[in-house]
């Protein structure tokens, strides 16, 4: 019979136990489990995820374990071909607190959520990064993400001028 906890091995060679329910919130792990029904339960290797980040992912899954499955939401969209990622509002207070972390960690969680295919977490991290860009000045954005300013003043002047006329319309 299927056991109730799953072991995974992280990139830093830690073996971590997580509940089957949380493991199944990752579409990637879920498919691995489905593909190996009946196989001896060896730890699933997750070479792209560190134990530090995985613990964060599990925290998030624990908080959201009773959320409706993402497929149910998609069902409502029915035939829409591409779910458009437009909205960036984060409404859950716990989530707001969760994304309040070092940029390095945010980036790693997003990459992990993408690799593990935890849809809700992935969406949350993308929203958060979008919010870090929204309404910010170029300087603020560069500073936040460690971006080099490779545009000349001439380029910038051209860009400012370009849409000056239409700027107020939007």
């Amino acid at each position: 019979m299927a056991s109730e906890s799953i072991s995974v091995t992280t990139s830093d060679d830690q073996t971590i136990q997580l509940s089957r329910k949380h493991a199944q919130m990752s579409q990637t792990i879920n498919s691995m489990l489905e593909d190996s029904v009946g196989a001896d339960q060896e730890a699933i290797p997750l070479p792209n995820v560190s134990s530090e980040v995985l613990k964060k992912v599990i925290d998030w899954c624990t908080h959201h374990e009773n959320d409706p499955a993402p497929v149910e939401k998609v069902k409502k969209l029915n035939k829409k071909r591409e779910y458009k990622a437009k909205n960036s509002t984060i409404s859950d207070e716990w989530d707001k607190n969760f994304v309040n972390a070092e940029l390095r960690v945010i980036v790693d969680i997003l990459l992990a959520a993408n690799y593990l295919d935890v849809k809700g977490l992935f969406e949350l991290m993308c929203k958060h990064i979008a919010n870090e860009l929204k309404g910010k000045t170029p300087d603020q954005i560069r500073e936040r993400f460690g971006i080099q300013d490779d545009l000349t003043e001439e380029d910038k002047a051209a860009m400012r001028k370009a849409w000056g006329a239409t700027k107020n319309d939007s």
Partner: peptide
Amino acid sequence: ISSVPLVS
């Protein structure tokens, strides 16, 4: 138009 293109 006003901030993103001026970043890089």
